[in-house]
Write a protein that binds this DNA or RNA. Sequence first.
DNA 1: AATGATCCATGCGTATTTTGATCGTTGAAG
DNA 2: CTTCAACGATCAAAATACGCATGGATCATT
Lengths: 225, 225
Amino acid sequence: MRILIVEDEKPLREQILSLMATEKYACDTAADGREGLFLGSEYDYDLAIIDLGLPLLDGTQLIRELRSKERNFPILILTARGNWQDKVSGLEAGADDYLTKPFHPEELRARIHALLRRASGHASSVLRYGPIAIDTSAKRVFRDDAEVELTSFEYNTLTYLAMHAGKNISKSELTEHLYAQDYDRDSNVIEVFVGRLRKKLDADGSLNLISTQRGLGYRFNLDKQ
Amino acid sequence: MRILIVEDEKPLREQILSLMATEKYACDTAADGREGLFLGSEYDYDLAIIDLGLPLLDGTQLIRELRSKERNFPILILTARGNWQDKVSGLEAGADDYLTKPFHPEELRARIHALLRRASGHASSVLRYGPIAIDTSAKRVFRDDAEVELTSFEYNTLTYLAMHAGKNISKSELTEHLYAQDYDRDSNVIEVFVGRLRKKLDADGSLNLISTQRGLGYRFNLDKQ
DNA sequence: AATGATCCATGCGTATTTTGATCGTTGAAG
DNA sequence: CTTCAACGATCAAAATACGCATGGATCATT
């Protein structure tokens, strides 16, 4: 999951960033609205966290611009306490949720998790695909009720594919969502991780869990239940 | 599109209903929260419009119940003017947008459109041309509901032609769109791929899927639906 | 420092793409 | 009605690019 953080106050920005890091989300940051607009227009994020009080381009305006460009990833806005009008104008501009500063890290984590879950069209936090179950809140994976230990990249790769079950996902789409901005594109990490996932979750290949469409990408082949 | 309307005041309910009728949406109505819960649990709507002030079961509670039952169609809530707390608790319960009463019919229409559009953002965008279906987000192609496996160049050639259905597309236009700039022009790759597409998708030629306009290019002959 | 995770380089096998040779079609000119 | 030339279709072989496995290097975390 790739997240855009637009926050002008450095300490808060860093705090959010490190929180996101513990969750293993790939993050890009912007310190003002204009930079946020650039990044948000340029890349396909899974979620954006936007402070409403921003220099150069107001948060509300930023959201409006992003929405008018058909960027429709979920947006969580941060507002100063008690500033009802701001929240509402933010929501009106197209934000999906808000959080008042100061906030508990735990709460931010929960809201982001909820937004990501909803955005992917899954209501429950346990995704079932035949014998494979993914608990997205605990970040644990099971095959036939036995837990399969995955590393965080293996887990992220799997969930991204599973949340787009049936679709061909190109390697570049995977790298874009699993890694932050500056990532060396020509590498075969993705192949390696897909290989590991196949080995760990479908060693004998009987599930045909992840198939490769040469030139088009990978496809998670189990139906959601 | 099927829409659930939960509103206790009869005049307003009728007004919304007639507005929705002009939009050709199929609507069910409920006059209280309990009835709303029954309908919302029973049927799979594309959207629900819910007034927060409801008899028998509060709107917020209704939303919570629906969400807990994994009904995740978008929900638009109606609130009395200036009742900030209500909006927020409604959004918190799982609503997607809100509108304050009284409202302009035009505004309700716009918001519903926006919500439906957003909700369909995750549905796969399938282009249908008679018996041929192209799922552009999954990059998969079907003929008469059976999947046809295409290679990436075959797929790209097909989608380019299909997205310009009815028009003559010259071979040079195709090469320009399928290849990076400097491509060796005198080659018959395109002919080969068109041949493969015809064989895979219309082996007996009964569809006349892609016709050749000698000297001008190729034409995809099915109408978009 | 030790452990585990992630990343990178290599070589191999194979699906896909490209080529080139040949054959079929078309439409205009003789 | 033929002939001809230009264009497109087809096929199989050749070239290529792609993905995979593997093992070792690097990086992060403890």
